[in-house]
């Protein structure tokens, strides 16, 4: 693996991507929707309700209160309204974690199928780049904007929700281990997996439009995977979460191998009808 070539490929892809209004609007727009518009439209109405409206209702199940009491320092003092807001904030946080799955459908389509569509692929394949360098470069250049978009969204989401909820909790949300593991471990792994699946799709399709359509199918099983990981933690144990992460990591390695094996110069140049 030649890192100089890899760096050149990534630099070129990122430069191209950030000169595309379409990609830029996806990388910036998606975090804005998930991190700004959704929490504002979902949480703010709850914040604006008079706290007395929440009094005298049913109690949360003990399982929830115990779980959140472990993560949120002032859970009991947050009151019913604060506790509902905290639960809502954590549920909506999962939506932020969909960004690393959805964005690669855009970025990977652009960097791989875009090359074919614009007929630049042949010159790239005629260069001394090896298959592994090419696939790794494409994975990284699709992965970086996805992870940057996710981190940006998580930061904005964290600021907005904490501004709204802090008066109820007097503590900062999303600094707990689960949230951090999701952001720094699971989100990047999901992003890599999503890019790898898009690369596999790119070997079968000829247009960016087709890639988007098939890419939307890739998103669904990965969303189920996220839900599975959340459930494994909430309802089983931390060890189950570590196991889920290990499975995710293994899948990333397996799909990397498949992607580099499936990516074939001849197939990328000529499609037999």
């Amino acid at each position: 693996m030649d890192w100089g070539r890899l760096k050149a490929l990534m630099g070129k892809d990122l430069r191209e991507m950030f000169k595309s209004k379409y990609i830029l609007s996806a990388v910036i727009g998606m975090p804005i929707v998930f991190a700004v518009l959704i929490p504002l439209s979902s949480l703010y109405p709850l914040v604006a309700i008079d706290p007395s409206e929440f009094e005298g209702g049913d109690e949360f199940p003990a399982y929830f209160t115990d779980l959140f009491a472990e993560v949120i320092p002032n859970w009991d003092a947050a009151g019913a309204q604060g506790q509902i807001l905290i639960i809502m904030a954590y549920l909506l946080y999962i939506m932020v974690l969909l960004i690393p799955i959805i964005l690669p459908a855009v970025t990977a389509s652009e960097t791989i199928i875009g090359e074919k569509e614009r007929k630049t692929m042949e010159a790239l394949l005629a260069s001394p780049l090896s298959e592994t360098e090419l696939v790794t470069g494409k994975i990284l250049s699709s992965f970086i904007p996805s992870v940057a978009g996710t981190a940006f969204a998580a930061l904005i989401y964290g600021i907005i929700t904490n501004i709204m909820i802090y008066p109820f909790t007097n503590s900062i949300l999303f600094l707990d281990p689960l949230s951090l593991v999701f952001l720094f471990v699971i989100a990047p792994l999901l992003s890599i997996l999503s890019v790898e699946l898009m690369i596999l799709i790119s070997t079968r399709v000829t247009s960016v439009r087709d890639a988007y359509q098939l890419g939307s199918l890739v998103v669904l099983p990965l969303m189920m995977l996220i839900i599975g990981i959340v459930v494994s933690y909430f309802f089983i144990s931390t060890i189950a979460l570590i196991g889920a992460v290990a499975i995710l990591l293994t899948l990333c390695v397996i799909f990397f191998k498949i992607a580099t094996n499936v990516f074939d110069r001849e197939r990328a140049i000529v499609k037999l009808v």
């Binding site: 070539r5 050149a8 070129k12 191209e16 000169k19 614009r118 692929m121 042949e122 010159a123």
Partner: peptide
Amino acid sequence: PALYERLTVRQNLDFFAKLYK
């Protein structure tokens, strides 16, 4: 010609120069 149309001529040449070491 297979040029990267969003990149400048210099960036196109620079990219391939790096690929060819």
